[in-house]
Design a protein around this nucleic acid. Structure first.
Lengths: 400, 400
DNA sequence: GTTCGATAGTCCAGTAGACGAACTAATTAT
DNA sequence: ATAATTAGTTCGTCTACTGGACTATCGAAC
């Protein structure tokens, strides 16, 4: 409910509609009676609201359930897996991944398009996204899912739905929703709203929603190259005053002198980024994506105990801990999750980061752990922003 | 409007009541017609709502205004300075300050009680607060203001309205609202709700509300001893997962070895705290409060260019910048405001902090500036939490 | 098998509160 | 004086939630 807007009966209705939809999502198959009880609304109202949601295709009635006790059995309601759905895209330098997510949160289809190098002209990425989109739109068509939106996650800084800067892709001031919207029209799916978000904030959301971490304040630190953080405050992504929250990659690490691609020296990226680690371990060359499934060279080296790799990892852990040490006491997050290439470095690495953090902030109770989610979770997390929006405002969807 | 609560006509009404009250507060003397226009409600509804607010004593009608143009002149409404008011207290180690604030934000009275040392038993502070409260309650009585609440600000970490830890006062797990509520009953003012908040978050609020800094993301770093930050996210105080957000005092500064009262070494407090600076400048002794109005010894020394003091200040600035360098890129605040004893150190100090911050985060656009507000603004900020609550929920007040 | 208690869900009159049009009120411009 | 303009009120209308009566469907007891 918007704070500075008047509340009329319509808004009242919207709010309650969202309330029961949210509850239906949280409680799974659920009776109207239970919805009434949990929401605080009366049975009559719930009947009315669920009626609208059924008509609108957001809910589905699955047969009568439970028989454990006296009384008329409930007619169970669930989110409609065949109703509106969301497409999530993940654009990285070497691939575009996508998935189609239904309202229940189930992935109905995936698609992946590898490419040698998508950096430079954004149209290259848009072109690579086209077959991915085509496949997902086709799937949606064949499963009777209506695509309610496309959400894109990419490593960059976003403001006002525009990609302000994406170092890893070499983009500046790119209006991705516009470009993709164009391509969607060409695919016969014009008019579908397109949104963009940063990969790190999306990964942070994913940690909260997919890994049962019900922390209201959570920091996700993710990686490969272009290190950055996604900050969740009050369960929501915190963008910062200029959309630059979480830009940790070029924070200077005390005592470090490594040259960085940004032109500076001693940036966190240059100490703890994936390429930097590979180089320090004597494994020069372009960083390989973990999408292939295999261990990145670095992880293997760390595991094998190769001295150069170990010392590079130790140094990276210390640097990461140092930077986190300035952030953790200010925000007091419930947990800091390390993603990107960090989990591959093993539990010892995480322990070392936590130790370095504790050394800087002795009093903090913030936990540190490695992400358990796969790197391609960003596409899925992006798709959830679409389905979430549907659940949080069903009325907007009914209005088409 | 609570997210997980059903919205009935009553809540609709509450929301709209708060909306017009907020607008009346923001726009100053204002006509019903203007309120209708700004709020998006109809004139009829505004008439109805303002009627309630007038009856409840939150609004007052001042005569008819403006005559610049044709048409019936407006009957101007303002927040009622003679209606409900709030008392704010500020408890520090050497004094208790308080003020009585009316709805319009005007300070109707102040009171101050100095004491040698209020540390240790919380009852000592409560006792010192008693004359302050008595005076303010008396004033309220004589001006026909009804005290709607007492809010206390103190240097400590608060969770669930309980003082979890207040190093500067030597308190642990103190239920201050309970203790003060008792004292209020003794003063014949029982039943007045008492709340507690940390001084730094309150100071952050003050920077936003009293100094026209309309930043949604703001960090206030305040001091004397027990350095800490108040973090505003979305215009609201961010408490952190465990109420520990902003606890910067014992973050370790790289390369620093000064022993700290906490038992550790190299804490920010031990490098940039007031006592530490005085000691480093060769001016040992207890830190003097700035309430006296005179310059603290340190500020004078820095101004006079005494080498020891200058080097200590430079070191403090570098340390502060370093710690901020971990926090700023994560949060991307609009501005960082330095309060406590820092403004007394002069503009050069602020410049040095900003330089150190920039050195760590080259890309950041966050401004750094000294607070322009007096240190006793905490009492006033505390009082605003009471008046704000009234404005944000008039219905709760009508219900007494 | 029938009856009773329990639970699920629907129906409908009642009600709170915002809306809108018509109205009154007070002022300036002609 | 009269028209134009803006402020504010009145009253009937509309929307959407409520509460109680009612129907539906089950298990358990007789």
């Amino acid at each position: 409910m918007e704070r500075d807007a008047p509340v009329r009966p319509v808004q009242q209705h919207r709010h309650n509609l969202a309330l029961v939809t949210r509850l239906a999502a949280r409680l799974g198959p659920v009776s109207r009676a239970r919805l009434a009880q949990e929401s605080g609304l009366t049975k009559s109202t719930v009947t009315q609201l669920t009626g609208e949601l059924l008509d609108g295709g957001l809910l589905r009635e699955i047969g009568t359930g439970r028989s454990g006790g006296p009384g008329r059995p409930a007619n169970l309601l669930v989110l409609n897996s065949l109703g509106p759905a969301g497409i999530g895209l993940q654009i990285e330098a070497d691939h575009v991944a996508g998935c189609l997510l239904d309202l229940t949160g189930r992935v109905r289809d995936r698609a992946l398009r590898r490419a040698d190098d998508l950096r430079g002209d954004p149209l290259r990425a848009v072109k690579a996204a086209e077959p991915v989109l085509r496949r997902l739109l086709n799937t949606a068509n064949s499963t009777d899912n209506v695509v309610a939106g496309v959400a894109v996650g990419l490593p960059g800084r976003i403001r006002d739905a525009t990609v302000v800067r994406a170092d890893g892709l070499g983009w500046t001031e790119t209006n991705l929703p516009w470009l993709l919207g164009d391509r969607l029209t060409a695919l016969g799916a014009g008019g579908i709203p397109v949104t963009v978000a940063g990969s790190h904030p999306l990964a942070a959301r994913a940690e909260r929603w997919f890994d049962g971490e019900d922390a209201d304040v959570l920091v996700y630190v993710g990686g490969e190259d272009g290190l950055g953080a996604g900050v969740l405050v009050g369960g929501e992504v915190h963008a910062g005053a200029r959309g630059a929250a979480g830009e940790l990659g070029h924070v200077r690490v005390a005592g470090a002198e490594e040259p960085c691609v940004c032109g500076g020296r001693g940036c966190l990226d240059a100490v703890a980024g994936q390429s930097a680690l590979l180089r320090a371990a004597g494994l020069d060359g372009p960083a390989r994506s973990r999408l292939a499934g295999g261990e990145s060279g670095l992880a293997g080296l760390v595991r094998s105990g190769e001295p150069g790799a170990l010392s590079a990892a130790r140094r990276a852990a210390a640097a990461l801990g140092e930077v986190l040490g300035g952030l953790v006491p200010a925000l007091d997050p419930e947990v800091v999750v390390l993603g990107g290439h960090f989990p591959a470095l093993g539990e010892d690495f995480v322990g070392a980061v936590e130790a370095a953090l504790r050394a800087r902030c002795p009093g903090s109770e913030t936990r540190v752990r490695a992400s358990r989610l796969p790197p391609d979770v960003v596409a899925r997390a992006a798709a959830t922003t679409v389905t979430d929006a549907l659940i949080e405002n069903p009325a907007a969807w009914f209005a088409e």
